[in-house]
Computed example of a mutant assay.
Amino acid sequence: MAETTAVAVPRKGRPLEAVLERVAARADATELADSIISTLRYEKAITKGRAEDPRNVYERLADYSDLGHPHRPEFTLLRDDRDGLPRRVVFDSVTVETETGPIQLVGREEPFRSLRTHSFAFGFDSADLVLEEVVALRPEPLDSIADVNARIDPHDTDVRVVTGLGDTVHHTLMATPELLDSYRADGATRKFVAEYEGELCISPRYERLVEAVLGTDVMQDVEFCYPGDGQEEEAGIAETGVGVYLTMTGGTARDHGLELGTQLFPSETVLMENVEESTDGDAAVTALFGDVETELAVQ
């Protein structure tokens, strides 16, 4: 019997759904993936007050999890950050049979850091976290996932990016037409930022990411600022005049009178490998999740 390979995945959210959708497509596990996704979406609706359930959270957890069946999903409870710190149902684990061997998806709050501490050989997380934690800042901009590994110091971590899953939204540069006109800029571009002096509005957690994708050279006369408490990012950018935020359609940005500009970097769920922990027997992971057209060379 082939040995089971453990893969760290997020406990909830878009990155976990991207992993499950890839499993559904390549491991004949559509029903399993759909059941996990629908359960977590339902629990999110309860958390947000958009749905009600007569069962308490412990009763729901018992109904969702079947500990006696190795190939049924398990869920667990975590404290939520809402008032009173209530418990929330999140993904815990499931084992999936593949043509090259069984894979166990294991939920972790911070999969990337689980790989950094050598707890797993493989894992999935947002590419954003790699930029925020280990990618070196350089004068030239970073604009593709394919270039991430070259920016990772091998003395800092053994983790490398293998491939992306294509669930892409973009960190996009945006600005008000008035500010662009004052600089006689031909749109919100990297060239505009290089000439710009002043505040640039971003989410606080993205300081290092934005500096990496813009490059340190253009940041010399730029100072980060942030939306006010409870304020939408697009609203804060509109007040500042220029900023960077995630966009899918850009509709909210346009509603605030912003002009969408250069897509600076893709925010995408990525498969990562700790090259010191993986073995030749872990081919099941790359066979299931790898993509010939987008797979990256591990350096």
Score class of each variant (00 low, 15 high):
E74A: 12
E293H: 13
P73Y: 04
E233H: 11
V57L: 10
G68F: 14
D158G: 05
P10C: 09
G187D: 03
R113T: 09
T176I: 07
P70K: 07
T294K: 06
H256V: 09
D80E: 11
D291G: 07
A253S: 15
V135Q: 02
V159L: 05
T168R: 15
L173P: 01
S65G: 05
M1V: 14
E207Y: 05
R11M: 13
V298S: 10
L61G: 05
G101K: 06
D167I: 04
L180G: 01
H118L: 12
E295D: 13
F75C: 06
H118E: 14
G257C: 08
P154F: 03
V275T: 15
H171E: 13
Q299I: 14
G261L: 06
E31Q: 11
V222T: 05
E273S: 14
G251A: 11
F224H: 08
P177K: 10
G230L: 05
T168Q: 12
F75Y: 15
V162I: 13
S114I: 01
D125E: 15
H69L: 13
P10M: 09
V94A: 01
G261S: 08
E31R: 11
D92Y: 04
R87K: 13
D63C: 06
V161Y: 01
T294F: 05
D147W: 10
R138Y: 04
A25S: 14
V159H: 01
T262E: 15
E133C: 04
A127C: 11
T189H: 03
Q263I: 04
R208Y: 06
L131W: 09
D53I: 12
P15A: 08
A8T: 09
A194D: 12
S126K: 07
L78M: 11
S119T: 08
T117M: 10
T95Q: 06
T30K: 12
L173K: 01
P15M: 07
A283R: 15
S93I: 03
I237A: 02
P86R: 08
V94T: 02
D221R: 15
G281I: 07
E207P: 04
T95R: 06
D217Y: 12
G257M: 09
R254I: 12
E277D: 11
A51I: 12
F224C: 08
F265C: 07
A150F: 08
L271G: 04
